[in-house]
């Protein structure tokens, strides 16, 4: 039932953004540094949400664009209607992930976010070596960045052992349990 609800309605209910306010001027796309690399440019994505069809919603949730968005906020800063596109992107990512719709090509991005958050969950802070290791395991991109890692190590930019919070991150683990990992 819940999943059949149109994305535009979910966005209005969950984060209070009304997609019908967009009048398709395209200023968001014009100013977006990654628009040329997106499968669906920001203003086009807004149009798809406005149509409110199942097909359009599926296309949005399965797009790479929502994962490419850098949240640089250029779009909302210049939007004449002040539509919070970064908030829309954030929420679409959450819906895409929880609904199992993540685009194949966006998996490395999701993998990175997951690895990052895993580090935070277990240590309370990020730990680059662990992060990269986990990310490589998730994506099997084993050779990536092997060229700069030793340099970074030599320049003292990488910690060998993770920094941890006083209780080994239990407090932070609890935050995860109560938010992103919550089962309800």
């Amino acid at each position: 039932m819940e999943d059949k609800k149109r994305l535009s309605i979910k966005l209005a209910e969950d984060i209070g953004v009304d997609v019908s306010r967009c009048y398709q001027c395209g200023k968001c796309t014009a100013g977006c540094v990654l628009a040329p690399d997106m499968d669906i440019a920001p203003s086009f994505l807004m149009r798809l949400l406005q149509t409110g069809t199942e097909k359009a919603d599926a296309r949005v949730l399965g797009s790479t664009a929502i994962w490419l968005c850098l949240s640089c906020e250029n779009c909302v800063a210049r939007c004449p209607m002040e539509i919070d596109l970064p908030a829309i992107m954030d929420h679409l990512r959450e819906l895409s992930r929880t609904g199992g719709r993540v685009n194949e090509k966006a998996r490395p991005i999701v993998a990175f976010h997951k690895s990052f958050l895993d580090m935070v969950k277990h240590n309370g802070r990020t730990y680059e070596i662990g992060l990269v290791a986990e990310y490589k395991m998730r994506t099997m991109r084993l050779m990536q960045d092997v060229d700069i890692a030793p340099t970074m190590m030599a320049k003292g930019k990488l910690n060998i052992v993770p920094e941890r919070l006083k209780d080994n991150g239990d407090k932070v683990g609890r935050i995860f349990a109560n938010t992103i990992d919550k089962k309800d």
């Binding site: 796309t29 100013g31 977006c32 040329p36 203003s43 149009r47």
Partner: peptide, 11 residues
Amino acid sequence: KGVDTLLGATP
């Protein structure tokens, strides 16, 4: 830096 929204939103 503009956009052509009739070309599927092309910068």
